[in-house]
């Protein structure tokens, strides 16, 4: 994203270039967390979860409250991730599943999950407004947000950006281990690949789906706690992040976790480079142009599964 503080005088082209790369990486990392949250839910339940923006912001508010009480960002981070997982699981079990039981046929099947999650988004944001009010809150970053010095110039990349990158890298690593090395991961992949066969093999598909929502919720909670410091916290704070996460997920093909990360990085680089080198105003249009270009070449995204399983 565009960092809010003013950049110091553009020294050399080199500093500018390095800055662009580093900011691309750190914004791409945040998009990646949201994209992962979208993909995890899509894989397990065929729902584009627009409520994710609300879930993530709600968990960030919970984190904010923890910081207010204890003063510890790290404790808040842990609480936010865990509560994100719980909220995700609760939403799937007590909201999405009953709706899917009722809505089975007609074109509404395509639109019902979208409308239901949009409605849920509105409700979550309203509840946040009821509880915490609408004024902007802020979360202090745990480490310095002042830019590093490269060749005597201060660049728009700070210890905090580095922390974001490291945190996201660790999260990716944990997810990869979970999916590739554990039985739970195998169950998750099997249920996403073919629910019927997975069920026949004795996997509790419904429980696994709820688990998918929980992991997605945790990912969103992490995204919120990493994104909000440096910005403000308000009920709609993560709406745009959700859109970018969704766009990144679509670029990556919606199916693959790797695709989500790759799509997010492509988006991060495209946006930061076009805003650095062409015009600040290209922030949003770049996202659209990249998406359309990718979809014109590959209508199902870059890393879509070869076999269509019917959306």
């Amino acid at each position: 994203m565009i960092r809010q503080f003013a950049l110091p005088t553009w020294g050399s082209k080199m500093t500018e270039f390095i800055t662009a790369i580093l900011t691309s990486l750190s914004s791409g990392a945040i998009y990646a967390l949201m994209a992962l949250a979208i993909v995890l839910v899509w894989r397990s339940t065929r729902v584009i979860n627009f409520a994710q923006a609300g879930q993530a912001v709600l968990t960030t508010y919970i984190g904010y409250t923890v910081i207010q009480r204890t003063g510890s960002y790290w404790l808040a981070l842990v609480v936010a991730v865990i509560s994100g997982a719980i909220i995700g699981a609760v939403i799937d079990r007590f909201f999405m599943r009953p709706i899917f039981k009722r809505v089975k046929s007609g074109p509404i099947v395509m639109i019902a999950p979208v409308v239901a999650t949009l409605g849920l988004l509105g409700i979550i944001q309203a509840i946040i407004g009821f509880i915490w009010g609408l004024t902007n809150q802020s979360i202090e970053a745990p480490v310095s947000t002042g830019g590093y010095k490269v060749m005597g110039k201060v660049i728009a990349f700070s210890s905090y950006n580095l922390l974001v990158l490291v945190a996201v890298a660790i999260a990716m690593l944990l997810l990869t281990i979970l999916f590739q090395r554990t039985n739970i991961g195998l169950a998750l992949r099997a249920s996403a690949y073919s629910p019927e066969i997975a069920r026949l093999s004795g996997i509790k598909v419904d429980a696994v789906r709820t688990l998918g929502w929980a992991i997605a919720g945790a990912s969103g909670g992490l995204a919120g706690m990493l994104y909000i410091p440096g910005y403000f916290l308000y009920p709609n704070a993560m709406d745009l992040l959700l859109v970018f996460g969704f766009v990144a997920a679509v670029i990556g093909g919606l199916e693959s976790l790797f695709g989500a990360v790759a799509g997010a990085m492509i988006l991060g680089f495209a946006i930061n480079f076009s805003t650095t080198y062409i015009s600040q105003k290209l922030f949003f249009p770049t996202a659209f142009i990249v998406l359309v270009l990718v979809l014109l070449i590959k209508p199902s995204g870059l890393f879509a599964a070869k076999k269509s399983r019917g959306a």
Binding site: V114, A287, L291, L295, P299, G301, A311
Partner: peptide
């Protein structure tokens, strides 16, 4: 050329980018 969520994503990106 696009189906379901891909079209939704594209139009969503259009909705945020076109007014700007």
């Amino acid at each position: 050329r696009l189906s379901g969520p891909y079209l939704a994503g594209t139009t969503l990106a259009l909705a945020i980018s076109l007014p700007t």
